[in-house]
Nucleic acid binder design. Structure first.
Length: 177
DNA sequence: GCCAACGTTGGC
DNA sequence: GCCAACGTTGGC
């Protein structure tokens, strides 16, 4: 993994639906990021997001929306089969095996931030105030974050970059063999 | 709970 | 292709 190629993303989730803690408790601490039904976000999931990319896990639609933890991508875009399941919440009758329409990636838990970075906190930082998630009307559930913003979150949190951890190199899904 | 912003749908 | 109506998102 060439770190110059690495990209960074912010992914929103309503914690009542799926929280960072839920990701921590998932098998292999990994979960498919399914259910995205927005074409712009779909295009990112399908075409742009790569294994090894960093993820800021954002809790939305609660009293104190905030970035709460770090995760990483462990499987690149593949068809979101929940669109094919009539009983699934995000069933889409237009989707098929031949034309899945919707895509997802697998995301793995890394570790929580030492404190939740709320919108007011982010807004007060000269670098982080530029994040897309703070922009009015921004509804993209998957959106790019700059390398500077990623590094700034780590600096402010007092964390080393987890993506530079040697024990994470050359692994996929945290599963060996 | 309110409502602004946004994306999608569908009539024309 | 336009655009009004509608449903959803998500901060507040």
């Amino acid at each position: 993994m060439n770190s110059n190629m690495r990209r960074y993303w912010l992914m929103k989730s309503e914690p009542d639906c799926f929280s960072f803690e839920d990701l921590r408790q998932a098998p292999q601490q990994t979960e498919p990021w399914d259910g995205v039904r927005n074409y712009q976000a779909r295009n990112l999931l399908r075409d742009e997001i790569q294994v090894g990319d960093g993820v800021l896990f954002y809790h939305s639609n609660i009293k104190q929306p905030a970035i709460v933890g770090l995760a990483r991508v462990v499987k690149p875009g593949y068809p979101d089969h929940t669109a094919l399941d009539p009983r699934a919440d995000h069933f889409d009758p237009r989707a098929s095996e031949e034309n899945p329409i919707w895509f997802m990636v697998d995301v793995q838990y890394l570790w929580p931030l030492p404190f939740a970075m709320t919108r007011s906190f982010l807004s007060e930082h000269p670098v982080l105030k530029e994040m897309g998630v703070l922009k009015k009307g921004n509804r993209l559930s998957v959106q790019p974050v700059t390398a500077e913003q990623w590094q700034t979150v780590l600096d402010v949190a007092g964390l080393e970059d987890p993506l530079e951890d040697q024990s994470l190199k050359n692994t996929q899904g945290g599963v060996h063999g």
